[in-house]
Amino acid sequence: MAMSMANTIDIASLSRQVKGEIETKFPEAHIDFCLTCGLCASGCPATGLEGLDPRKFLRLLALGQDEELRSTKWIYSCTNCMRCAYVCPMNIDVGRLVMLVRGMRSKEERPTNLQKSCDLQKASNSTGIPNSDFVWVVGDVLEEVREEEPEWADLQAPMDKQGAMFYLNQNAKEPTVEPEEMVPLWKILHKVGIDWTYSSEWWDGANYCLFPGDPEDWEYTVRKQAETVDALGCPTYINTE
């Protein structure tokens, strides 16, 4: 096989900065442990996209191909599904490394909507509707059901009920675009007869801040949720998805 000099990786001029940064932030990254066995790439649907796969991604790190790492779109085709980490014989969590590389981009360099979802959620919820709208939509839909379906006349959708046994989060998609999709769950909870509540703040369960790559944003939104639930005094937090 003829080797082209054009793409030659000159070991003498490697920076391996990206790798170094990852290893500082995540000492258990274990990039060097890679056996290049291909188990990850064999099971990854993102293999081949943008000419990369989990194994090649690790190799870019190991061989200090920083420019490519900083520019490749592949890091947004990897869905962090961790199917690679699930089997990697060396326990390398490629998904997490991808997140760290995502985080090395400035906010402007990131996919707009991805960053926006997180920014909105940091403010309140990922679709950006005012909290008051959420409260209103819940009340409105509830009223409608009670009126139109007599057998559900005493259906509940409690809001900010202090000391409820269960706290329920809500993906923002429903109150925003398909509010009727909230009803089935209410009915189930009603049937079972549990004591539950929504919160009028930090109610969105989407958690998009996990994805753009800034752990502090992710931490912020989770912390807000935790504070909210504890403030309501609910012993159990039900995640609805």
């Binding site: 706290y167 369960g205 958690n207 039900i238």
Partner: peptide
């Protein structure tokens, strides 16, 4: 998203009194 809250609580060692469960 289940993992984001679960792992967030764990990784950032966020104090909380509740138990975190899935509706499933």
């Amino acid at each position: 998203m289940y993992y984001a809250t679960l792992e967030g609580l764990r990784r950032f060692d966020i104090p909380h009194k509740f138990e975190f469960v899935s509706i499933i």
